[in-house]
């Protein structure tokens, strides 16, 4: 079966800055692929090239076997793209926005009318479809943003951080919907700042950092690369920066990053056995108020591969 998406050695430069550097991955039909990366890693730039908005300086993209550069219109027909920003006319109602995009996609009038009802239903907004989008809450706007991409039943859904600025309830609703769509056979490319979303929705993950895909595989494969390394979350009252500095000198600690005003995340080979050494390393830089040792997981893999946390 033709893969839903194949991109090879994508390069995008702005001036002398290479923002996307030989990025390549593929998404099989019906597969859910997550792209994880810190701010400015190049996720949105990569997606722009996948959906034909930006021409790559090098490399190629095929969507459902169609080369995006050769036949952009045919390729774009297969894609449902949800941009990172809320791209909707605030002066128009959800229904009017959907009608606009449905027409752009060339949906026949009658089909469009019934599809608008269906997607509004799908994102739980049937009751508010005739209200102006400008009057919506952040969560409702996000859901409408997604509804637009589903109108034409795309084969590949591309979501660029679809839950930013959304209340927890809407987030759960969005994730449920996305999971259900994947269950129905839609292929998915998902980027997020929230590790747990990607863990939940995606079966395969690519980790992108400074324009490069530094790892790619199933969650299990990525975690296996860590070997026996545990993630340790330390909370303390005191100077976290100085404490992290000291912790890095402990034998067996591969990473120590400050994640908040009183928290430090560590990657530690054989976490439990090293706890006493960690506590004494903190010494007088602060008073440790909590320690949590977590089995190797995606968060740990991310820290291992990029040396940073997903959310700054």
């Amino acid at each position: 079966m033709t893969p839903a998406l194949v991109c090879e050695r994508l390069v995008k430069r702005y001036g002398d800055k290479t923002v996307v550097d030989r990025v390549g991955f593929h998404i099989d039909e019906g597969e859910a692929y997550g792209l994880l990366g810190p701010n400015g890693a190049g996720k949105t730039t990569t997606i722009s090239m996948l959906v034909g908005l930006l021409r790559p300086d090098e490399g190629s993209v095929r969507v459902g076997g169609i080369d995006v550069d050769e036949d952009p219109v045919a390729a774009k027909r297969l894609i449902g793209y949800v941009p990172q920003e809320i791209a909707l006319y605030p002066e128009l109602t959800a229904r009017e926005n959907l009608r606009y995009f449905g027409r752009l996609h060339g949906l026949p009038r009658r089909e469009l009318a019934s599809r608008i009802g269906e997607v509004l239903d799908l994102v739980g907004l049937s009751g508010r479809g005739d209200d102006k989008v400008g009057t919506y809450s952040g969560g409702m706007k996000r859901r409408t943003n997604i509804a637009v991409a589903l109108l034409h039943r795309p084969r590949l859904l591309i979501l660029d951080e679809p839950t930013v600025g959304v209340d927890p309830q809407s987030r759960v609703a969005i994730l449920d919907r996305v999971e259900a769509l994947v269950g129905e056979g839609m292929s998915l490319l998902y980027t997020s700042h929230y590790m747990e979303e990607v863990e939940r929705v995606c079966t395969r993950v690519g980790i992108i950092d400074q324009g490069r895909v530094v790892a790619d595989g199933s969650k299990r494969e990525l975690v296996a690369e860590l070997g026996g390394t545990d993630r340790v979350e330390l909370t303390l009252d005191g100077d976290v920066t100085a404490a992290a500095e000291k912790l890095r000198t402990v034998e067996g600690v591969s990473e120590a990053v400050v994640t908040g005003s009183s928290s430090i995340r560590l990657l530690v080979a054989g976490g439990r056995h090293l706890l006493p050494a960690l506590l004494s390393a903190v010494g007088d830089t602060g008073a440790v108020t909590g320690v949590e040792v977590v089995e190797p997981d995606l968060e740990a893999a991310f820290l291992h591969l990029t040396g940073s946390t997903l959310r700054d």
Binding site: V51, V73, K76, P83, E85, I86, A87, L88, F101
Partner: peptide, 17 residues
């Protein structure tokens, strides 16, 4: 405004020239 909120960009991502 259409450019700022990404409407022009999103419209161009539809199967149009």
């Amino acid at each position: 405004e259409s450019r700022r909120i990404g409407m022009v960009r999103r419209s161009l991502a539809a199967p149009v020239r």
